[in-house]
């Protein structure tokens, strides 16, 4: 494994632990660390999506406040901290910038199932990092298209079917986590 991947995984383990401390102990120091890392990224993401600095600042604060409020809903066996924060920021973008609602799939039930298995959490983190590396290694043209899709507003018809994307293993990992959750519900 490459050292950068090791470092990133360690980082994500820290973020997962910080979110757990917010959930369990309303830990403001843990929140401050998450804020320091993610708020400037969320702000940049919103500005690239078309928000001016004032709106992006306000929305980034709201995104981070939502992280605090929904800390109990974060499942690190299904998403990395960065992925979860991305989904919160994406929803805020649609609401504040696009002035639309975003219907969400009904969620699988939370709260009753046991804590996710630590091995699953680590495996998901590892595959999230590998995905990040794989995206970095994509041909320029494909990477630019992904950036445009996520940072501006490329429509679904402008996104040609992207079958060559390196999503296979992480999809299997998420599928596994979903299966476990389904099993625990029965």
């Amino acid at each position: 494994m490459k050292p950068t991947t090791d470092r990133k995984r360690k980082e994500n383990e820290d973020w997962v632990a910080c979110i757990a401390r917010i959930r369990d102990a309303q830990d403001e120091a843990a929140f401050a660390r998450l804020f320091g890392h993610f708020a400037p990224r969320v702000k940049a993401f919103l500005m690239r999506s078309g928000a001016d600095a004032t709106l992006a600042e306000e929305c980034a604060q709201e995104v981070m406040a939502t992280l605090w409020q929904k800390a109990h809903m974060f499942d690190p066996s299904r998403a990395s901290a960065a992925t979860w924060i991305f989904t919160i920021a994406r929803n805020r973008k649609i609401d504040a910038l696009r002035k639309q609602k975003r219907p969400e799939p009904e969620d699988l039930p939370w709260g009753n199932e046991p804590e996710p298995d630590q091995a699953d959490v680590l495996a998901l983190q590892e595959e999230s990092d590998q995905l990040g590396d794989a995206i970095a290694a994509l041909p320029e043209k494909q990477r630019v298209l992904i950036e445009k899709a996520y940072f501006s507003d490329l429509s679904h018809s402008e996104i040609a079917d992207q079958t060559g994307l390196p999503l296979g293993t992480i999809k299997s990992r998420i599928r596994l986590a979903l299966d476990r959750l389904r099993h625990a519900m029965k």
């Binding site: 990133k8 804020f35 993610f38 708020a39 400037p40 990224r41 969320v42 702000k43 940049a44 993401f45 500005m47 690239r48 600095a53 992006a56 600042e57 980034a60 604060q61 299904r78 998403a79 990395s80 960065a82 992925t83 979860w84 924060i85 991305f86 989904t87 920021a89 994406r90 799939p105 999230s128 995905l131 990040g132 995206i135 970095a136 992904i146 950036e147 996520y150 940072f151 994307l165 999503l167 992480i170 999809k171 299997s172 998420i174 599928r175 979903l178």
Partner: peptide, 23 residues
């Protein structure tokens, strides 16, 4: 649902790669 999870993970990777703007 799992495929969407993978695309969300791609969004997470993009945010992680993103430049930063000071708060």
């Amino acid at each position: 649902r799992a495929r969407l999870g993978a695309f969300d993970a791609m969004g997470g990777a993009m945010v992680e790669r993103c430049e930063t703007v000071d708060m």
